[in-house]
Amino acid sequence: MPRPAGGPTGPQSVDRALEILDVVADAAGPVGARELARRLGCSLSTVYHLLAPLTARGHLARTADGYAPGPRVASLHRSYRRHLGLDPRAAELLPRLRRATGAEAYLSAYRDGRIVMTDSTVPVTDREHPFLPGPETRAHATAHGKVLLAGVPRPARRRYLAEHGMARYTGRTITGAERFEAELAGVRAQGFAVSIGEADPAFTCLAAVLPGGAGVPDGALHAVSVSLPTADFLRRRGEIRAAVARAAAGRLR
Rank of each mutant, 00 (worst) to 15 (best):
R34P: 08
D22I: 11
G10M: 05
R34S: 13
Y48C: 01
G29C: 05
L50P: 02
E35I: 05
R38D: 00
V73Q: 14
L44T: 11
R57N: 07
Y80K: 10
V14M: 08
L51A: 06
A52E: 03
P8M: 12
D26A: 14
G41A: 03
T9C: 09
D26R: 15
L44S: 06
S43W: 00
Y67V: 07
S75W: 07
S45L: 00
L51K: 07
L51R: 05
A61V: 04
P53N: 04
V47W: 00
Y80C: 06
G10H: 12
A52H: 12
G29P: 03
L40M: 07
S75D: 09
E19S: 09
G32I: 03
L51F: 01
V24A: 03
G10I: 03
V47G: 03
R72L: 12
C42P: 05
L40K: 06
T55H: 01
D26L: 12
A61N: 07
P11D: 07
L36P: 03
Y67D: 04
E35C: 01
G70H: 11
T55I: 02
H59S: 07
G58L: 07
R82L: 11
R16P: 15
P30Y: 05
R57Q: 12
E35T: 12
D26E: 14
V31G: 08
Q12D: 14
A64D: 15
V47M: 07
H49Y: 15
T9K: 15
R81H: 08
A28H: 06
L76I: 10
P69N: 10
D65E: 15
A52G: 09
P69C: 14
G32T: 07
A64S: 13
V23F: 13
L60S: 14
S45T: 08
G41W: 00
R72T: 04
L54Y: 06
G29Q: 04
R78L: 04
P71I: 00
D65A: 15
G70A: 08
A61C: 05
H59A: 11
T46L: 04
L60P: 11
V23M: 03
A64K: 10
P30L: 13
A17W: 06
V14F: 10
P53A: 12
S75L: 05
Y48N: 09
G41K: 08
A56V: 08
V47E: 08
V31W: 11
D26F: 00
Y48D: 10
T46Y: 00
A27V: 09
V23T: 15
A74L: 09
H49R: 15
S43T: 06
P30M: 04
R39P: 01
A52T: 04
H49W: 06
L50F: 01
V31C: 05
V23S: 11
D65T: 06
R82M: 12
A74Q: 13
R39Y: 04
T63P: 05
